[in-house]
Amino acid sequence: MASAIIVDGLEKSYGTKKAVNCISFNVNQGEIFSLLGPNGAGKTTTVEILEGLRERDAGRIEVLGMDPWRQGYELHKRIGVIPQGFSFFDKQKPVEAIQYYAELFGVKVSAQKILEKVILEEAADTVFEDLSGGQRQKLGLALALVNDPEVLFLDEPTTGLDPQARRNLWNVIQGLKEGGRTVLLTTHYLEEAELLADKVAIMNHGEIMTSGTPEEIVSKYGSGKKIVIKGGEGVYSAIVRSGISGAFRNDNGEVSVPVRDRRDIISLVTSIESAGVTWGDIRTEEDSLEDVFVKLVGGTMDEGELRSKGVREGNSP
């Protein structure tokens, strides 16, 4: 499949601060690609360089086969952008804003249709300053769609929205993919990346820790499937005695055992049974993208938001 975006060895510093440290990734045409990382990871810097708004220090980049910094004027006709913290002129209505963009791009559009696409018809005549946070972001999306772009850059489109507005916007973003558009989405909401993206790159301190489909990332960095058994000391020692390795006693009276094969489960249960100890519920468990993220970034999850522990501690995978 053809690449819509190619990033190879991209670097960018602000003074002595290295914001982006030699990152590489490809985004295929028609794909939703998510840069997932906590604040300050370097997502916006990366995206702005790809949009041709910032000059890079080093590396090769291509968006739709163009160099964004040198061919920005041509590129801008073919991309759509919601900048981080999008805002518009206070006294303009969405219809007027869309008309403005259409005239700037020299295209004929039906404002009504675009508003329908982003589910904003009900606020068509509300001036920007009176729109809700979610409606504002939808207007941003509407404006990004005016020139019928091939690539969309959405920089934290749902940050600061309430859960319902966020879910609402997710529906809209999912709808965009149907048109075959390529979308580069940055977010610090794990759920958002997991739900919307075909591919995810986890970014921290200017570096990409890993990338791939969410499943690929989990299977690569996750600890694999585990069996978790309720039971105390007796269960644990029975497992150890039977020669099964890697058993681990949790604080909450559970024992977890990594499994590589389905038959491991049978030998495990047999060994506990034959030891004659009492055991409770048994279930299987697998690392989530969240577990992987916490492992890779050394961060925490806070109400669905990724937070990096300490900003300057070097976190190499």
């Binding site: 702005e48 801008h76 991309i79 020299g106």
Partner: peptide
Amino acid sequence: RFKQLSLTP
């Protein structure tokens, strides 16, 4: 806003 406008022609 200037950044945003620079993304238009």
